[in-house]
Amino acid sequence: MHNSAVLRPITNLFGKVSGFANRNPTRMAIILGLGLYAFTVFQVPGAFSVQAISTLFMMTLLLSFASAGQTMVLIGGGMDFTVGAVMSVAAMITTSIMRGEDGRFLQAFAVCMLLGAAVGFINGVCTTKVGLPALVVTLAIGNVVTRMSYLVTAGTPVGRVGPAFASSVIYRHFGFIPSLALYALILFPLVFYILYRSRFGRQLYLVGNNPEAARLCGINVNKIKTISYMISGMLSAFTGMLGVGMLQASRNQMFDAYAYQSLIAVVVGGTSFAGGVGTYGGTIAGSMVMVMLNNMLTALNLSQRVREITLGLVLVLILVMYNRRKGVRQ
């Protein structure tokens, strides 16, 4: 009796926050991200600097690019665990083709896009035609992509990106605006257009909401889902190129962690695992939450294992809070 009296205010508060998060996921993610940063600065005033903000901005952008395709796939009712593997392989392709020369950028870009589209196509066909869970299929294909990269490079990818390309990613305009933001000026409107203005985007939401209804409306559900995986593959490949532009040299599996990070950023941004619900604006805000959370745990100077455990627990809490949405009626 006593216990329930103590717990009731806590559960009520959790319920209210959870309700707000589900009604306004993007706003909630923005509040959460800014709150985490404010707490970090309160604890460690040195964390408030132009350089730090600029780098946090850059890392948020990179994660939001990686999460763009994942958002589309989740809205369509799927899941893409090949994001990290495709990013890593695209990074290796970029350095091995460019070999320090900017003139080869277009070649690298073309090969990376082909790779992303091919992996996305295989993901799409395997999940839609065979009907196996997207989680299993994309994990397996991601693993195959990774092993093939080892086979081709023998574990030692070569080359570097061209200096102008590297500069187009890490140069800071006026000392604090990262050049990566210029890529956002192209990518963000493109993703917003695809999701909210194109016929494909509208069909994607309907497919994710209720595939049977979509089929009865004459929509080729398998085709729409496969296209979403292909877009995800291409966006992942392009993000891998930008990522290696930042780090300048490639390594095997260098961006593997982005598979999980992108998925969590998308869910934190309000996209439902059940499909049919979600916004890219929410994903960008979710990416900010992920970056700010990592930053806060580092600033608090906790041991790394404690940081990783705390990160896991906080993410579980956030995901529980965000997934109280009622399923769409089938």
Binding site: T40, V44, P45, G46, A47, F48, S49, Q51, A52, T55, L56, M59, L247, N294, N295, T298, A299, N301
Partner: peptide, 14 residues
């Protein structure tokens, strides 16, 4: 290693 160092720099550790 690079990401850890980026986090340390962002966190304002002196």
């Amino acid at each position: 290693a690079t990401e850890r160092m980026l986090e340390i720099l962002n966190a304002g550790v002196e």
